[in-house]
Each structure stands twice: as C-alpha cells, then as structure tokens.
Design a protein around this nucleic acid. Structure first.
Lengths: 165, 165
DNA sequence: ATAGACGTTCCAACGATAGGAAGGTCAATG
DNA sequence: CATTGACCTTCCTATCGTTGGAACGTCTAT
C-alpha cells in the first residue's frame, strides 16, 4: 500500500502521515526502490488509532502516550484511564471558558435593542475599563498547550531520512 | 506614555501592541526623536477595548470590525449586535464540540475499571475502526479560522515603518 | 511516447502570542 | 562625567496541527 491508499484507508491525509513520521509519532515507513513509502495493515491500524484519538481532541503528545499504552498489552487499565480523565478535565475546562464568554456576550446582547439607533451596551461594555471576562492567560488555544516546548521541533529538524532528491 | 506604561495601563503586552501596529489593527504610534513609541489616553482606550474583546474571544479580524463600529458613533446598534450574535454562535459551537468529546470520553472512561488489569474499553475504542466522534474537519482551533487567508500576513510583511536600526 | 495521476522533498502559511538576541536610550547614581 | 540597569528598538524563531504549493520523480494506461 502506498501513502495515498493508506490515507484513504485510515482517514489521515498523506500530508499528515508524512508529518507524523517526521515527528516520530509513527515509525518511518519502508520504501520501494524508487522511494515510495509502503504501508501494511498494522500501519493502517495505527493510523486509524491516531485518527480516532485526534477526533477526541488528544494532542500528538498524548497520542504518543496512548500508543505506547496500546502496544503494551500488560499495562494497567488505570494508566489509560488516568490519561483520559486528565484530558476530559482539560476539554471541559476549555468548554467552560468558551461557554462563559458566550454567556457574557449573550447577556450583553440581550440588553441591546439591535435597531437603527446607535446606543449599544455591547460596544459600551467593551469600551468601559470594567473587566468582566475571566481571561485564561493564553486565550482559547488547543491541543495540549505549553508544557511541550520543543520536542516536536527538535524531532522535525532532526533526522530527515537522508532524502531522495 | 511609552510602550511599557501603555502596556500596564491597558493590559496588553508591549509585544502585542507592536504586533497590532504591524498588522494595522491600531495606527502607528508617533515617536520621540530617538524612536520610542508615544501613546496618549485615546490609544490606551483603544488598547483596552481590544483587550476586552480578546477576552471575549473575538478574533483580531472581528475586533477590526468592532473598532470601526465603535468609532462610528452613528452606526446602528443592530450592526454591533449581529457581529456579537455571530460570535456567540461560534463560541457555543466550539464549546459543544469540546463538550461532546468530553462526553464521549467520559462514557468510555466509565466503563473502564481503572485497575491493574489490562482490559480497557477506552483504548479498545480508539483501536476499533468504529468511528464515533464527529470530527469537525479542522479539529478544535480558535479565533476565526480560515476565511482570513492572507490579510494579516500581507500586512505584516508589507509596511515596516522604515525602522531605526 | 506521452499524459496524468500519483509519489517525493522542502518551504511557507494559518492565529495570537512569547522568547530572545543585539543593539540604542534614558534616568539616576557614584 | 561615567557607569549601571531598566527600558526601548528591530528582527528572528517558536508554539500546534494542518494545508497549500512548487519543483521534480515515478508509475500506469493509452
């Protein structure tokens, strides 16, 4: 299977498959004589796993962890559960932040006539020095923020597979 | 007022103030003879406005809109309200996505004993080809995605204020 | 043989923000 | 008057995950 087939079989774009390889999330695929990547069923399985985990909002770093746990068939289910629970917390934290912003704004909007006249509590509130929204330092970002620092970058820069070009 | 004072008066970091200038969100500050940026009360007011809007999750692009509406003292409050309502929709959409992910995971986690034994429905579910999570195409990103394309970039590259260096 | 659908690498962009290097300026102190 | 240290300046890089495109090579079918 070449990368295109692997992509449609797994739901992960070819671009991302290559990317996951460079950051070391998946092992480097073997190649045909002409340099095409070759994938087997195991690889597809892994890619699908990754896809599912991303769909659940896990960061690449967490997926690395999950993959390791997945392959370790004797690990305690507690290990997996703890990763999951931590992630659930984060998801809900973000959801709450967004929800709070929406609620604040909605409240403001309710007091705005929304007609032809200029008076508008929404924009007035933005202009007032009144601080109202709880600002989460780094505003709504995603996939594990911080804590990661340079791992991926190092890997990206590091071993490029002595390319054919 | 120099940039440091403007920063603490407005709650916007000096870095961001300079950035907002390069992308054209705020007008270029005037300078002292030696090249220091100078800010007045109006600028602080604007910066505070921006800060509030960011705290409510508005993207820079939307803030551009809001600033224009703010300065247009004869605009209809309906214009502001419509921007706000659109944004509320987006915030709640994201919140819902995150919440759904959390709910899915939580459900999985509830069926996981979290003990010493290896059996774990969470990781099994990731591994199954069963697709479960609604994948929002581009997973949880933030601040107006897409649609923006190159505006900011162009501005950033464009007019650097004939620097002193 | 040639078209065109694939593959390869490398580079840049998205959005908002922070870190840091290398240098210039300003205030106050010795 | 010189030095110190806190500030300012610009420029470059990184973050995170993903996509787009350029420039080029390969494979397959006509």
């Amino acid at each position: 299977m070449n990368i295109g087939e692997a992509s449609s079989a797994s739901g992960v774009s070819a671009k991302m498959i290559r990317y996951y390889e460079t950051i070391g999330l998946i092992r480097a695929a073997s190649r045909t004589e002409s340099g095409y990547r070759i994938y087997g069923d195991d690889d597809i399985h892994t890619l699908r796993f990754i896809r599912s985990a991303r769909d659940l909002g896990f960061s690449v770093e967490q997926i690395e962890e999950l993959l390791a746990l997945w392959r370790d068939r004797s690990r305690a289910s507690a290990s997996v559960k703890s990763v999951a629970l931590r992630h659930i917390e984060e998801l809900e934290q973000k959801a709450r932040e967004l929800h709070n912003m929406a609620a604040t704004l909605r409240h403001l909007a309710e007091n705005c006539r929304g007609d032809q006249r200029p008076h508008c509590p929404i924009i007035d509130s933005l202009a007032e020095p009144t601080q109202r929204a709880a600002k989460p330092k780094a505003p709504p970002r995603f996939g594990k923020p911080d804590l990661i620092s340079d791992r991926a970058a190092r890997k990206v820069k590091a071993h490029r597979p002595s390319g054919m070009r």
